[in-house]
Design a protein around this nucleic acid. Structure first.
Lengths: 220, 220
DNA sequence: GTTCTTTTTTGTGTATACAAGAATATCTCG
DNA sequence: CGAGATATTCTTGTATACACAAAAAAGAAC
């Protein structure tokens, strides 16, 4: 059995992730309550959870709005993201079991297939699995959780990410170096390569950030 | 003006930190409500926040208990802690302003004074300031926040930390290496030294973990 | 005396009611 | 016609009430 606010949290979180609720948008408790057919209480509890996760901001007596991250914050969060992933990679290089290495290679192969087929959507998905395979190899459940949390928090802004020309091929090539470093057990190299790999995405973000104001709901 | 649940959160968080509420202990909503002279509603909202922070665990229909971290989880969290601090150090080595370097040196000097005076309590406090000085040098507010969050989450278990023989002198010596690496701008070295410095504390934790069952309130 | 079932009790989850602060609209006066 | 003050409305924060599930206690069967 699950509680109302738990399901609500997932739903609203998804709505934020896909942009149905835009950064800066005011979240009316009663409106959400009626929309989901519940009372204000579980809605409030949901909003508090989302606030703790950083997805919304609650100002006392002034209600909740979808968190809007400024360029500065985004850069900082991406930097941390790259560090977390790099750490996963370094630990994975030292700790992966043969089975986990096999899984990583398989995920890598799947990326190659998607690249060859020139299917960005497929690649995007396989890419996630590839990174998950590295996370798993860190053998640190808490680290994995933290990394996933941050990833989810950045998701609302990810849909901005353009299908940059040749990004697929470049990405795959970077993956290749990471995989080799990991199977060779070279943690420092894996760390370095992953840090750069993720950071490059972050820099693309920087490029896009000038278009940020366009994204968010014009707050009153 | 601030809201009830905000002040409540700080109070309960502190109670958990100092061990007035022990890991595993059941948190009765009505009891807390009467104790603080408010209704259940703000208490519930507080508990939800604490749950999102990982300090308590809420199981549906079964209430909240103070989170109890197993040895495995503690080791994992300490590993992440060391990585976050190490990252702060690496960034600080590259980004610190001269003023921030001065502040770091001052904090380091304060540690030395405390060591010479053989005052563990003072050293403990000055040590915090020392690490904070490094955080600040990272120039990444989000990273600092994450690091502080984890630190706070580990606080309930920190009071276990023994005054190990010679730990003060060793700690100060380790700090010395870190400071030199940072002022020399050697990010990689600072990262490595800080990782080890924090991890050593974590290993002391491991040693103490056998005494863990004694700490937590015997859950029914 | 032990174990399984049934009943009671306790405590959580949700809904509703009320109070107070913030936003907004209206009105008055320059 | 515009600016400031006041009143109204709206939304949030808190309290209370109720429903229902889970744990605890009591009772029955073996």
């Amino acid at each position: 059995m699950t509680t109302h606010s738990a399901t609500l949290r997932e739903e609203i979180e998804e709505m934020i992730a896909v942009g149905e609720l835009k950064p800066g948008q005011h979240l009316d408790e009663t409106e959400l309550a009626t929309r989901f057919g519940v009372s204000r209480t579980p809605v409030r509890e949901t909003l508090i959870q989302l606030a703790s996760m950083g997805l919304v901001v609650i100002r006392p007596r002034r209600g909740a709005i979808v968190a809007e991250l400024g360029p500065q914050q985004l850069v900082e969060m991406f930097e941390v993201m790259s560090e977390l992933e790099a750490t996963c990679g370094r630990l994975a290089a030292r700790r992966m079991t043969p089975e986990e290495q096999q899984a990583l290679l398989a995920a890598h192969q799947a990326c190659q297939d998607a690249r060859d087929a020139q299917e960005p959507d497929v690649y995007y998905y396989k890419n996630e699995l590839f990174h998950e395979a590295i996370y798993a190899g860190s053998h640190n459940q808490f680290l994995i959780e933290q990394t996933r949390n941050l990833y989810r928090r950045l998701r609302p802004y990810r849909r901005l990410q353009l299908r940059v020309r040749d990004r697929l091929a470049t990405s795959y090539h970077e993956h290749d170096g990471v995989v080799q470093a990991i199977v060779n057990g070279d943690g420092d190299l894996a760390e370095k390569l992953l840090r750069e790999h993720v950071m490059i995405q972050g820099q693309r973000f920087s490029d896009l950030m000038s278009s940020l104001p366009r994204l968010r709901q014009d707050a009153a």
